[in-house]
């Protein structure tokens, strides 16, 4: 039984048009980049992986996470984290509460939970930001909080939906290093969906199209 995220002959078709055809395994700590122009089926792939397929699409094949078949499971049962291009921090909660929202309830006790949140903030170089209103943070800070929030929910895999496309060049480079660094450090498999070759290459893994054509093989990390 393989650890990691396994797409087992996953095909998605709309009518007679094939949008996605993937047979890949993403190992823990590895990033698979799926690259293609908009309308090429990237977002359909994400919605299928997340467990919320759009009606009208035909899906065949299986998705397994650490050996567990995800068929029929909703997003709340899959343990796949999701990072959008907008940070989607909840504006009615403080930075700390945004993180607490993600932290599983199995981490019990006020001090233990606070310690985990503080550690996460520290890892994002945002120590002491717990009480802040998200609206007072810079774009880069918000993006880091969003990633830490995602990771705090202890996902077994990560989906990155164009997470850098809203950032300017400098920030983009920093954020890439931060995100891919965290993915390697946490040892979870990740799929990056992007239309930007630079992002895809920076992920350091294999780069393929939604139909499985290899654009670039992974370089050793």
């Amino acid at each position: 039984m393989a650890a990691g995220l396994e797409l087992d002959h996953l095909t998605i078709t709309l009518g007679d048009r094939r949008l996605v055809d993937l047979h890949q395994t993403v190992a823990p700590g590895e990033v698979l980049s799926v690259m293609g122009p908009s309308g090429s089926g990237k977002s359909t792939l994400l919605s299928v992986l997340i467990g919320r397929p759009d009606p009208g699409f035909d899906v065949s094949g299986r998705v397994r996470l650490d050996g567990r078949d995800l068929s029929g499971l909703g997003p709340e049962a899959r343990r796949i984290g999701l990072l959008f291009q907008d940070d989607l921090l909840f504006p009615h909660l403080s930075v700390g509460e945004n993180l607490a929202f993600a932290l599983p309830s199995t981490v019990k006790g006020r001090t233990a939970r606070q310690a985990r949140i503080d550690a996460a903030l520290e890892a994002a170089e945002l120590a002491g930001f717990a009480g802040r209103d998200p609206a007072t943070l810079s774009g880069g800070q918000r993006a880091r909080v969003a990633l830490m929030r995602c990771l705090l929910s202890a996902p077994r895999a990560l989906l990155l939906d164009e997470p850098f496309s809203r950032l300017d060049a400098d920030l983009r480079r920093q954020m890439r290093d931060f995100v891919f660094g965290r993915v390697r450090a946490e040892g979870i498999p990740a799929i990056l969906v992007t239309h930007d070759l630079e992002d895809a290459v920076a992920a350091g893994g294999k780069v393929i199209s939604p139909l499985g054509e290899v654009r670039q093989t992974g370089r050793p990390a």
């Binding site: 997340i50 919320r52 909703g74 997003p75 709340e76 049962a77 899959r78 343990r79 796949i80 984290g81 999701l82 959008f84 989607l88 909840f90 929202f101 993600a102 599983p104 995602c150 929910s153 996902p155």
Partner: peptide, 9 residues
């Protein structure tokens, strides 16, 4: 927002 919350369980 709901989807995000759902991916967190």
């Amino acid at each position: 927002s709901v989807l995000l919350a759902q991916t967190m369980g």
